[in-house]
Amino acid sequence: MIAQGIRNHHRAVIPYVTAGLPDLDATGRIIAALADAGAAAIEIGIPFSDPMADGPVLQRASHRALQAGFRMDALVERLDGWSATVDIPLIVMSYINPLMRRGLHETLERLRDGGVKGVIIPDLPRDAGRIFAHCRDIGLDLIRLLAPTTLPARAKDVLSQCSGYVYAVSVKGVTGQRTILPEGIRDQVASIKALTDLPVCVGFGVSRASQVNELLGFADGVIVGSFLMQRIMNAHDPVQAAHNALKSIRNAS
């Protein structure tokens, strides 16, 4: 279902937004604004105290959201309302610990009940077979990441337990904006596409409309996180800022 949505979307850009920044009401309005600006899907980030795969911008976003009093229960309560207002898939991205705290399976079911269509967990255990099976059983896509360092045998294993889309990490590094795309990203996407029929979306480091243009030439979608969160955090009107940022990065010629 997520896969179909991405394939059918014109210029599929998937924004990532840290939940609870400046508060959950604002997150709801930001989600609506991003959908209005043409997002293909939205990744809702659960803030975490120790985001080891994130660069400075998303670390700061996490930290601020926690300072502002983010609570998991409050998020889960709102999911239903958010998913009812948009007609694109909502995806939750979280480090594994906040999801495991009150039982991973139960938490995933609560997300599903809130209308969430997929989850991304950057620090899944090496063998995630049981987690994938549970997601499949409850009707949740488990979107997996593949890195530039991932070897072909591992990529095959991961792809056999992946649904929704493949999150191709563009760089060896943490999340954050970079001015140039790494060499080899085109080959990386091609080699993933040779192994799967799932859409392949590229994330990490995307901060310019020209990069989005280039990536959409060979990838099925582009994920934009730090670029957007920096604009949201710097703005007086975060909702308008989110809308403008997505429009500008998605629609450049």
Partner: peptide, 21 residues
């Protein structure tokens, strides 16, 4: 399971690091 002490341990890391481990 390899790398575990009972239910503890494991490799909960970003995919980028797995080959290095």
């Amino acid at each position: 399971m390899k790398g575990y002490f009972g239910e503890f341990g494991g490799q909960y890391v970003p995919e980028t690091l797995l080959p290095a481990l």
